[in-house]
């Protein structure tokens, strides 16, 4: 959606038009819920983040400056709401001042099981899907937000940077760290072969 398309809607929102509010929700609620669900990892918290996002968007619509699109602006509000909530729930995963460049030591690949060409059904198993979601949940929240916006929601590097108030280079470096961590984890998981629940430690 271009900024141009937004401007009519923004004008109506700023004028307090109820139908415009409803349109904003209809246009974006599904996407924001998806983001919230991936960030929070459970439906209850995701719904809270969804409601919080639109409540605070409605409250601050007067401050909306059309440098960003409405969509990026909402992503930004939603990510902040999610991070704030995560900070309360799991402070150890969301240090506010996470160093942007940590020693590469923990990024160096250690698991070299080549799972890229496993039969497709291995990736479609419910177990594998659940493992992929758990892997997102266990990323530090600052990496998780970048990964979700870029690789799950498909935002560009620039849009992600705008939504998270990060520099382009910070987005790239966090995305790389997130992807390497996920790769490491999936390589470990798939190296164990198809999982038979009773025998898995």
């Amino acid at each position: 959606m271009s900024h141009q398309d937004d401007s009519d809607l923004v004008a109506r929102l700023k004028a307090g038009d109820q139908a415009a509010y409803a349109q904003l929700v209809n246009d974006h609620a599904a996407r924001i819920y998806r983001l919230a669900l991936r960030m929070m990892g459970n439906e209850t918290d995701a719904e809270d983040v969804l409601q919080e996002t639109f409540l605070s968007a409605f409250k601050s619509i007067d401050n909306f400056e059309e440098r960003a699109s409405l969509s990026t602006w909402l992503y930004r509000i939603a990510t902040n709401a999610a991070l704030m909530r995560l900070r309360r729930k799991e402070p150890e995963l969301v240090s506010v001042e996470e160093p942007v460049e940590r020693d590469d030591g923990d990024l160096l690949p250690r698991q070299f099981f080549d799972f890229c060409c496993l039969p497709e059904e291995d990736f479609l198993r419910a177990e594998a899907r659940a493992e992929m979601l758990r892997a997102i949940d266990e990323l530090p929240a600052t990496l998780r937000s970048v990964f979700i916006l870029r690789d799950v929601e498909g935002l560009s590097t620039e849009e992600t940077a705008a939504a998270l108030d990060l520099s382009i280079s910070a987005v790239k470096s966090r995305l790389m760290r997130a992807r390497l961590k996920l790769r490491e984890r999936l390589a470990t998981y798939f190296s164990q072969g198809p999982v038979i629940p009773e025998t898995r430690q």
Binding site: A30, F113, C116, M132, V152, R179, R183
Partner: peptide, 18 residues
Amino acid sequence: NTLAKTITLYRQMPSPEL
């Protein structure tokens, strides 16, 4: 190879509905 596969797998993950 596995990094590219990881990215593809997440891009193809079905998205939850509202």
